[in-house]
């Protein structure tokens, strides 16, 4: 999990790069890290292009991150989701909760539009 702040589209957007697996082993770590990232910004893009697998606990932690971001008047958008990860989001109806973009650039631009 890598975190960086990007301001290229205007607002401070936290880009979180997820890779490999998110499951019971590291989902708590994601939630804990997210709490520290929230101190820097409340707008996030989770770049899922290197994410190979997600299980229900990983999904739960991403939904929990979204909830926290919304509580801080921010948002969390997903980008570059592969077909397998996308299938899990579809199956569990989690896709309806998120704004999903084909890549990080598009997700960043969407923040630029909504946060002038």
């Amino acid at each position: 999990m890598k975190f960086r702040i990007d301001t290229s589209t205007g607002p401070h957007v936290g880009i979180v790069t997820l890779s490999g697996r998110i499951d019971a082993e590291n989902s708590i770590e994601l939630q804990n890290s997210f709490m520290s990232w929230l101190l820097e910004t409340s707008l996030f893009v989770f770049d899922c292009s290197d994410l190979d697998f997600i299980d229900s606990s990983g999904l739960g932690s991403i939904v929990s991150c979204l909830r926290k971001a919304l509580e801080h008047n921010g948002d969390l958008r997903l980008a570059g989701m592969g077909p397998k990860v996308s299938m899990v989001f579809e199956l569990t109806k989690a896709k309806k909760l998120f704004s999903i973009f084909p890549d990080t650039a598009n997700a960043m631009q969407s923040f630029g539009k909504s946060e002038p």
């Binding site: 499951d23 299980d55 077909p83 397998k84």
Partner: peptide, 19 residues
Amino acid sequence: MLIEPESGVSLAIEDPHLL
């Protein structure tokens, strides 16, 4: 096993409470 027929992408769901 969850299979997307057109793309042929398949995924083995590990959570028994899902599939």
